[in-house]
Each structure stands twice: as C-alpha cells, then as structure tokens.
Write a protein that binds this DNA or RNA. Structure first.
Lengths: 196, 196
DNA sequence: ACCTGAACACCGTTCAAGT
DNA sequence: ACCTGAACACCGTTCAAGT
C-alpha cells in the first residue's frame, strides 16, 4: 500500500469511529467521506461495503472479546465465567449503536466481512456454555445457537434507548434464564459481582 | 372523505399488506405507490409517515391483541394466561418482518402514530404480569417495562432469519425466565432456582 | 377536495479521467 | 497505484398546478 493510501485508510477509520459514535452504524457513508476530507469513491475502495468498514473498525475489539473468552474457559467456575462473558458481550454491544443488528445478520452470511468474527464469538460462547452444562450449572436444553440468539436479543434490547435504563436488570434476568441456580443472587438490590 | 379518496385509501392499504409481507416494514414508499397505481404524494397525504401507514395497517391486529389480553385477565391461571399472552405476541411479531423494531422505537415517541397501540400492549402486559406476581408465579423483581423489553427482545430475535429456526425454544427459555416455577417444564429434575 | 408530476436534497454504486 | 468528480438510479419531502 502506498503511503498516501495508508494515510487515507487510517484517517477514514479514525473519523469513522467518531461518526458512528454519534450516529450509529447506519451513518451515511457519503457524510463520513466528507468529514474525512476524502472522495466517496476512495472510501468505498478501501471499504467496499459498510460491513468491511466495521470489520476493520471493530476487529481489535472483537479479537479482545474472543481472547477474553479463552481466558474465561480456564478461569473461575464455569457459571461465573459464563456470566462474565455475557457481561463483556453486553458492554461491547453498547459500545456502538446498531452493532448487534449488524452482527446478527452477518453471522449467517458467509460473504459478510463480519462473518468470521461472528463465528468466533459464536463458538467461544458455545464452549463456555458447554463447560457450564458439564458442571450442571447451565440449562441442559440449550444449544450454542440459543445462547448466541439470547446474547443478540439482550444486546439489541440494551441498545434501544427505551430499554437502556433497565439494561442491568435485563442482563440479570437473561443470565438467570441461562444458569440453573446458585451462583447468581436473584434478590434485587445487590450488585451480583458483574463488574469486571 | 370523497369517494375516490376512500377508494385510494383502502386500495393503498391492501397493496401495502402485500408489499410489506414481501419486503418487510422498510419497503420503499415510492415502490408501494407505484404498485398501487397512485401518485407518491397521494400516498403520503393519506399516510404522512411510515408509522401512520402501519398504524392503519395493524390497528385491527393490535386491537385484537389487546382484546385477547383483557380476556386472559380473567381466564385460567395467571401464569398460563401470561404464557398465552406471550405466545400471541410472538405470533404477531412474526406476522410482519421488522414490526417489532418499529414498535420498540415508537413506544417512547408520543408523536408516533403507533404510540397509543404500543402503550395499550405495554399496559395489558403489565396487568397480566401483576396478576401472576400476585399469585407468586412470576418473578417479583420484574416491572412492566422489563416484561415489555423481554417481549420486544424475543420478538426481535424470532424475526431474525438466523434465529427463527429456534423460535419455539427461545420462547420457552424466555417464558421460564419470567415465570418462577411449576406450570412450565424448565430443566429435567433440577429446580431452576429462578424463584425470587 | 383531492390528485399529480416535478423539483429538491439526500443515499450508495460505478466508472472514466486525472496524477 | 491511487484519487476524484460526475453520472446513475434510487430514496422521502414538498409544493405549485391541475381537475
């Protein structure tokens, strides 16, 4: 890659970070190009699709997320690990408005630039679930697909402005729906160690 | 309303039913007008916003839904009523692609044409929840807002093509997250510990 | 009263022309 | 190699002109 190209590439990426923080993942590409001071066609050759842009934008976050999952696989109790993982996920979901919807549709489209990242998160989740199920602390009648769907649904909900105020509580309800018992305090008021 | 206006109104509505069944709630208004053989401006004066169109389109469904809720308030056990209500909701959510997202954003916007319908469903849900909580068969630490958020999240999930195959099971998981025990089989043998 | 074409300001895609 | 303006086919909004 030529020097000017590289400069454009990284500059667009940094401007994109600001723009989607403001307007969410459906922000206008044209507007983004304008704010980056670059031709629209230039932006689109670096990132042919919206998803390609977000893949580049989120790859470090997504890698950190799956990295965290592998750490959790050997640390602490299986149920605590699962809850911690869920917590990480929700924090990620809240980082950029609309990112969950994007990933939910990408994770079944092998052509999507986000497909691999989704698959990684999906399988990391499934491993943590399986470990907890082995100990009997997670619902036995749940598949990796179910867990991913619940994660996506929870992530979508907390992303809605109207539901965001209840995010912590919704997290708690979903978490207790996944786990079978014990490790999670149900009683209201106490913060059940969800802070990472 | 003049005769020709009335004819346009109802014809647009019937064409809209087909178009959104095909393309979901984000179908192009322009395309809809074309298919209805009517000027775009005409369509937009009958239905100034997309939500106004869907309010007119869904009002019978939505009325039937809240009607069903009031019936359930006095019929059967509170927990069974709640599950039946949840079932009705999911069926509605699946009737038109994207309708849940539309309602989730409408339900906090008093200016939306769908606001009243959302509020009606919200409060009907809250009443059914309260009755079940009175009998101790629904989580005590859950508000009407939480229930509505869970309903929306579930409705969103089953609307995603990738999650639709697991719709029944996701329904089951969410239902058992709301209820405390008993009427719904949760996991084999073990008591779920979901009691509040 | 009601309908309509057209102008407007957007959007993402594509490509020939520039350096 | 890489960038860019412009043309293209869309979108929803608005309004003056028609009946």
């Amino acid at each position: 890659m030529r020097a000017d190209a590289r400069k454009n590439y990284s500059h667009v990426l940094s401007v994109a970070r600001d723009v989607i923080a403001e307007h969410g993942v459906n922000a206008s590409m044209r507007d983004l190009a304008r704010r980056a001071g670059v031709g629209l066609a230039t932006l689109l050759r670096h990132f042919p699709t919206r998803e390609a842009l977000y893949e580049a934008l989120l790859c470090t976050n997504l890698d950190a997320l799956t990295q965290k999952a592998t750490e959790l696989e050997t640390a602490g109790s299986p149920d605590e690990a699962l809850v911690s993982w869920l917590h990480e996920w929700v924090e990620f979901a809240q980082s950029y408005k609309g990112v969950v919807t994007l990933m939910a549709s990408a994770h079944t489209d092998p052509d999507s630039a986000l497909y691999a990242s989704c698959a990684a998160i999906h399988s990391a989740s499934a491993r943590l679930l399986l470990r907890a199920q082995g100990k009997g602390t997670a619902r036995a009648d749940m598949s990796g697909d179910d867990l991913f769907a619940l994660m996506a649904a929870l992530g979508w909900a907390v992303d809605q402005p109207s539901f965001a105020p209840r995010a912590d509580h919704l997290f708690h309800i979903i978490a207790s729906a996944i786990l079978t018992s014990g490790s999670l305090e149900i009683t209201s008021g106490t913060d059940s160690g969800l802070t990472s």
